[in-house]
Structures are given as C-alpha cells and as structure tokens.
Computed example of a mutant assay.
Amino acid sequence: MAYPETVNLAFNRAVIEPDFAFSTPDRDVPAAPGYWLVLRENDLIARAAPAGGGLELPYGQGPLAGPYAVPPVFVGTWRGRPLRAARLSPEAAVAPGLVAVPAGYRYAGLDEKLLTLAGIARQVLHWRDRSRICPACGGAPREIPGTFGARCPACAREYYPRLHPAVIVLIRRGEEYLLVRKPGWPAGQYGMVAGFVEFAESLEECVVREVAEETGLAVDDIRYVGSQNWPFPSQLMAGFTAGFAGGELRVDTTELEAAAWFSAKNPPLVLPPASSIARRLMDLHAPDMVAAALARK
C-alpha cells in the first residue's frame, strides 16, 4: 500500500481511525462483550473471518481461559465495541477456532490494522507488566482514573507510560545511499543508522552522534521526514534524511555487522519491511534504488 503521509504507517494510530477510539481502563464495562487483543509471546491470537476474509479479532465475553501473564485490560473501543488486551502465559493453549499469528513487523500475514492493534496491545501490556511494583518503595501502585498512570499508595509517587525516542536516518552522497546491517537481520537485508536519544540531546544532535559513532562519517542538511510509533517494546522512531559531509567509512562492529554505499546500480538484496519507517524513507527519497532492488527479485 502506498501511503500519502508517514503518519499513516503501521503502528501509528491514524491507521485504525475511525474504527478505534482510545480509552482508559477505568472506563470498561466488564459485563459487555467485546473484541480481544490477546498476545502470547510474539503472536497475536486471531480467528479466520467468514468467507475467506482473512483474519479478525476474537469477539465475546472472553475467548481464552488463560493462564494470563498480564491480565485483561480495557484499551478503548473497536468498531463501537469494547476492546480489551491481555497477554497469555507462554504455555497457554489456544482454543479451537483460533490461531496464533506472528505479530512482528516482518510478518506479512497481518494487515496494517491488525498489526497496529497488536502494537497497541504490546505497548499497553508491557507498561502494565513493568508498573506492578513501585521502584521507589516496593509498594503496589494503583490505577489513576482517566489515565494509564499508576500511583503508589505507600509513597504517593506517580508513574506514567514511557516512550523512548530514537532516530533513524537515510544518508545521501550524490546518487548513493549509506545503508547498514545489524547482526541477526535476514540474509542480505540492509537498513539505516538508528539509535536512542541521550540526555540533553536534540533529535538532530542524536542523528549526528549516531552516524559518527556507528560509521565514522559526518553529516549535514539534516531534514525531518516523519515518525512512527514502534512498539518493540516502546519506541518512537523519528525519521530523517541527511547529506554526506565527509569522513572515511569505519564500521562500529559492536553495533553493526556491515555498512556500505548503495544505489540504483547497486541496490541491496533485501529491503526493510514495508511496515517500517526505514522503508518509507527509502520509498520517498531513494525510489530508483527501491525500484532496482524490487526488480531483482
């Protein structure tokens, strides 16, 4: 699918509007049947839609008995019905009529809507799991109505969900683009320099530092393109382009496996997944290279 704006990438809420309305746990009506966003490790539990219509979320009072690693929590409404998320324990069985489907960004079996919904579940459940114990005093925080925050009754400290900002950048040198490869990626796949923002650092400063640390290169003409919520488990990726400003390529092998300059005449063997902002940056700013890579298949 060709997106007119980066905001329409998978994992961004715009993908599921107007079907989805975000809400908070205290707004749930427990007796009302609804849709279920159930994860088991990295899988989403789904069911086959009627007449070969692909996959859809289970619907009802509660399609799975558990056991649950993270109990059900209300996250809003989906197509006007309650939407609840939960995480099964790894050993939990899947009921007849349901299937466990990979919910990662590399899997093409989920459409953008289900992928985005699974991302919401992943982030909410990650936060719920990490906020059970007060890190200051060891107390048991309780929900703050109207939010996903928690307040410890013992020490009164409040905690709210955290998103971790990171940058990703496509660097251009004439008709060439700097791409990098990390250990564990599929064979032949290359992406871009990326990294987390540090204390007292702007997004642009993070771009300069990460490029220098990972590749030894300097960049200029840094331009913001767009952002993507990245629920693996709780990042916000800010996408940039930049121009090559000098230096010799020196790969930081503690972070990367390889780095090289690519072009339409020398495209990478495998592009980043279509659901990622890395691919969106390439589609927008290196279309000739993308077309050449796709033509090689």
Results as ranks from 00 to 15, higher is better:
V124M: 12
V124N: 13
V124P: 12
V124T: 15
V124C: 12
V124I: 15
L125V: 13
L125E: 06
L125S: 10
L125R: 12
L125A: 09
H126I: 02
H126C: 04
H126A: 14
W127M: 11
W127Q: 09
R128D: 07
R128N: 12
R128I: 12
R128C: 14
R128P: 00
D129V: 00
D129W: 13
D129L: 13
D129S: 14
D129Q: 15
R130E: 15
R130Q: 15
R130S: 14
R130N: 13
R130F: 02
S131K: 02
S131F: 05
S131I: 05
S131N: 08
R132P: 02
R132E: 06
R132F: 04
R132S: 11
I133C: 10
I133H: 06
I133S: 07
I133W: 05
C134F: 10
C134M: 10
C134G: 10
C134A: 08
C134W: 10
C134L: 09
C134T: 12
C134N: 09
P135A: 04
P135H: 12
P135T: 03
P135N: 11
A136R: 15
A136H: 14
C137V: 03
C137Y: 12
G138T: 13
G138A: 11
G138W: 09
G138H: 09
G138P: 11
G139W: 10
G139S: 07
G139D: 04
G139Y: 05
A140H: 12
A140R: 14
A140D: 10
A140G: 02
P141E: 08
P141M: 07
P141D: 10
P141L: 07
R142H: 04
R142A: 05
E143W: 09
E143P: 08
E143I: 03
E143V: 01
E143A: 11
E143R: 07
E143C: 00
I144Q: 00
I144R: 03
I144C: 01
I144Y: 01
I144D: 00
I144E: 00
I144H: 01
P145E: 06
P145V: 11
G146E: 01
G146M: 04
G146D: 02
G146I: 01
G146T: 00
T147K: 09
T147N: 05
T147R: 08
T147Q: 05
F148D: 04
F148G: 01
F148R: 04
F148I: 02
G149W: 04
G149Y: 02
G149I: 04
A150I: 02
R151A: 11
R151D: 00
R151L: 05
R151Y: 00
C152I: 04
C152W: 11
C152P: 05
C152H: 06
C152S: 08
P153V: 12
P153T: 11
P153H: 10
A154N: 13
C155E: 05
C155P: 09
C155M: 09
C155K: 07
A156Y: 01
A156P: 00
A156S: 12
A156F: 07
A156D: 14
A156N: 05
R157I: 03
R157C: 01
E158I: 01
E158K: 03
E158R: 06
E158D: 10
E158W: 02
Y159I: 02
Y159D: 07
Y159R: 12
Y159M: 13
Y159N: 01
Y160I: 03
Y160K: 11
Y160R: 14
Y160M: 07
P161S: 07
P161G: 06
P161W: 06
P161E: 08
P161H: 06
P161C: 08
R162I: 15
